[in-house]
Structures are given as structure tokens and as C-alpha cells.
Simulated scan of single mutants.
Amino acid sequence: MTIYLQLYWEFFKTGLFAIGGGMATLPFLKDIGASTGWYTYSDLMNMLAVSESTPGPIGINMATYVGYLVGGLPGAVIATLGEVTPSIIVILLIAVLLKNFQDNQYVNWAFYGLRPASTGLIGGACVAVMLEVLTFVHISAGGIVNTFGLEGGQIFNLPALALAAVLLVLTNWVKKVKEWHPIVFIGLSAVVGVIFHFGGV
């Protein structure tokens, strides 16, 4: 029972404070993994890949994934409920109150501060994902400031960089291809990963 309460509480906090959408949950999920030992940072990157390639909001998908990993089907349900409970409460309060305060200067100032805060959270998560996936730089959380180390002799993961560069070009500048559904790119990337693996790249 304790593990289910912990799952609910950890994801309740994540849902309450991860302002800015699903990617903003990544710093919280990283802290959960570090403090509980439920998963490693590499596991988190795999969860991110699975959550991005499945239907639904990424934050909720991640909560469901972690919950199932830790507590099976009941854990998945409880972690997901923990993630969505704050959103339900807050959006109901906002729906009731914002109409009365939408022209209030303090409310406008609060949103002015929330926008860059959420951008910073998302940006930090993106940098961490890029370092983990595209380089061999290892991030260690310890003390006030993270430390960085190098795994092996190389800095850059060249196959991952090449794949990311190809996808960047295809999804932004090749007119016929950029109209494809994102699931096509996710599927093709998975195939490339299998080919690279069996090819020993």
C-alpha cells in the first residue's frame, strides 16, 4: 500500500508543479528516479521514446509507464490519477475564478512570469534529452550544481546525430515528406535503430 501512496504523491507533485506541458515533467521525473531508485536516467529516455510514440499527452503517458513499472496495473492507474488530479482541480478553479479576474493586473503579471518559467523548464528538459541521446556526456546530479562527465573517448553519438539531422531536414525542408504523420518518422527511426544495432554501429 505504501508504494501506491508514494506513487500517487510523487505524481501529484509532478502534475501540480510541471507548468508548461508534458516535456516540463522531465526534470521532476528525473528527480523521482534519482530519489526513489525506481528507474535510471537511461530508462527515463526509453520511457520518453515510448511515451512520445503512443497516443495521449506525454506527461500522463510517462506517469502510466512509471506506475506500471513500479506497481503493475494498479500502480499505473494510481500514478496516472496522481498526475491528473492537480490539473482537474486547478482548471476547475481557474474556470470559475478567471472570468472574474481576467482583467486584473496581478493575474496578468502572474501569467507574465509563468510563461518564461514554463519555457525554462521545457528548455532544461530538452537540453538534458539532447545530451543523453546525441552525446556521450553523462549528467550527475549532486549538490547545488550538476556535474558532467564523459563516457568513453567520444563526445558525440554520431549515428544519433546523423539520424536527428536527417529528420530535421525531412520534417522542415522537404515539402512532400514534411507533410507525413509524425508516427511515420517514429516508425522509420525505430527501424533505423534496429539496423544500426544489428550492424554494430
Rank of each mutant, 00 (worst) to 15 (best):
L69D: 03
G71S: 06
G72E: 07
G72K: 13
L73A: 11
L73P: 07
L73E: 03
P74R: 15
P74S: 04
G75I: 10
A76I: 08
A76F: 14
V77E: 00
V77T: 09
I78A: 09
A79P: 05
A79L: 00
A79W: 03
G82C: 12
G82N: 10
E83G: 02
V84D: 07
V84I: 15
V84A: 11
T85Y: 04
T85Q: 05
T85P: 01
P86E: 00
P86T: 10
S87D: 14
S87F: 15
I88C: 13
I91G: 08
I91P: 06
I91Q: 04
L92H: 05
L92M: 02
L93N: 05
I94V: 11
I94P: 01
A95P: 01
V96G: 11
V96H: 12
V96I: 15
V96Q: 09
L97S: 07
L97I: 10
K99C: 00
K99D: 07
N100K: 15
F101Q: 02
D103F: 15
D103K: 15
N104K: 06
N104W: 02
Q105T: 09
Q105M: 10
Y106G: 00
V107P: 01
N108S: 04
W109V: 15
A110T: 09
A110P: 04
A110Y: 04
F111Y: 12
F111C: 09
G113F: 07
R115Y: 00
P116G: 05
P116C: 10
A117Y: 00
A117L: 03
S118A: 12
S118N: 02
S118P: 02
T119S: 11
T119R: 12
G120P: 02
G120F: 01
G120R: 08
L121K: 03
I122M: 06
G123H: 00
G123L: 03
G123C: 06
G124R: 15
G124F: 09
A125G: 10
C126V: 14
C126Y: 09
M130D: 02
L131N: 14
L131E: 14
E132C: 06
E132N: 11
V133P: 04
V133D: 12
L134C: 04
T135W: 11
T135R: 00
T135Q: 08
T135G: 05
F136I: 05
F136S: 11
V137R: 08
V137I: 13
V137S: 03
H138F: 03
I139A: 03
G142Q: 08
G143D: 13
I144C: 05
I144Q: 07
I144G: 09
V145T: 12
V145C: 11
N146T: 04
F148T: 10
G149T: 13
G149S: 14
G149E: 15
L150D: 01
L150E: 02
L150K: 06
E151M: 09
G152T: 03
G153V: 01
G153T: 13
Q154K: 12
I155G: 04
F156M: 12
N157S: 02
N157H: 08
L158W: 15
P159S: 04
P159W: 07
P159Y: 08
